[in-house]
């Protein structure tokens, strides 16, 4: 009888949670279908997809996302590898350093970036290229906690030192060890880090908005101010995109119980 009662409560909270998840999603979806009076249609989606600014901003954000992932992996993978092989005593310190981006809210970060690099001697904000560099750097910083942890978890699950020594004894140099031994074994970890990273960049508003670059986030914010049904359609598209990214992570890391890192 007792377990019966417990179960009832568990189901109550679970149902409540699912309502909280699904009602806004469902509401948004139905709302997005109501652009044409009296009938349900996908016109809002057509209108979004037909908007060349949407496609451009989508392409821009996707490109930035990929660049961010590349820079992030290039920066963090050798770093984490080095820590595991050469300076393992640095690991606790690195755990702290890599959560520092959480300490500086994005709005403060962008404020600082603009004030620091918008002036001489850097003046990066004067050119689009310079601004894009600044944006990428910002993205790498804000996604660092996720990427670092993903790679760290992956490294921890294999004996990096022994693998390295084994590969070296067989005649590999450092670069070969990293690209031919370590990276293949870290595929899943890097991939899930990359997907989180990519999803974050795709939905990001602050950096793009204040650095005035045509990213998806700024486009959406603009649409929100001027249209009624397209934002709902965009929200659904955005849901879908996040869903795909997380789905891919789950798909790739099936079996390994990796904890999802989250944040804003």
């Amino acid at each position: 009888m007792k377990t019966q009662k417990k179960n009832t409560w568990a189901i109550f909270w679970a149902v409540l949670a699912m309502l909280y998840f699904f009602v806004p999603m469902l509401g948004t979806f139905i709302f997005s279908l109501r652009m044409k009076r009296g009938v349900l249609s996908f016109q809002a989606y057509q209108s979004v997809l037909a908007d060349s600014r949407f496609l451009e901003s989508f392409r821009y954000s996707a490109t930035m996302g990929i660049i961010t992932v590349l820079v992030s992996v290039l920066l963090l993978l050798p770093t984490v590898y080095w820590i595991y092989v050469k300076v393992p005593w640095m690991r606790p310190a690195m755990d702290i350093i890599t959560i520092l981006p959480f300490v500086v809210p994005v709005i403060v970060l962008v404020f600082g970036l603009i004030r620091t690099f918008g002036r001489p001697p850097f003046q990066l904000t004067l050119t689009t290229f310079g601004t894009d560099i600044l944006m990428t750097a910002g993205y790498v910083i804000i996604t660092m906690p996720y990427m670092y942890r993903a790679i760290d978890v992956g490294m921890r699950s294999m004996d990096v030192r022994t693998l390295t020594e084994a590969a070296q004894s067989l005649g590999s140099n450092w670069f070969q060890v990293l690209t031919q031994v370590i990276l293949p074994n870290l595929r899943i970890a890097v991939l899930s880090g990359a997907l989180i990273c990519f999803a974050t960049v795709m939905g990001e508003l602050i950096l793009a908005d204040f650095l005035v670059r045509p990213a998806l986030g700024s486009y959406m914010a603009g649409i929100g101010r001027s249209k009624a049904y397209e934002p709902a359609a965009l929200a659904i598209i955005s849901y879908g995109l996040t869903w795909v990214c997380l789905g891919l992570i789950q798909y790739f890391s099936r079996g390994s119980q990796e904890q999802q890192l989250t944040g804003r």
Binding site: A17, M18, F21, V23, P24, M25, L26, G27, T28, I30, F31, S32, I196, A199, T200, G203, E204, L205, G217, M220, A221, G224, A228, P231, A232, L234, A235, S238, Y239, T242, W243, L246, Q260, T262, R264
Partner: peptide, 26 residues
């Protein structure tokens, strides 16, 4: 869904709530 919702924020979230509970929301 927790993984999804915890990662779902920013502008789209605001849109979703406007579409659901806004003045003309669903």
């Amino acid at each position: 869904f927790s993984g999804l919702a915890a990662n779902f924020g920013g502008v789209p979230l605001a849109f979703a709530f406007i579409a659901t509970l806004g003045r003309t929301g669903f």
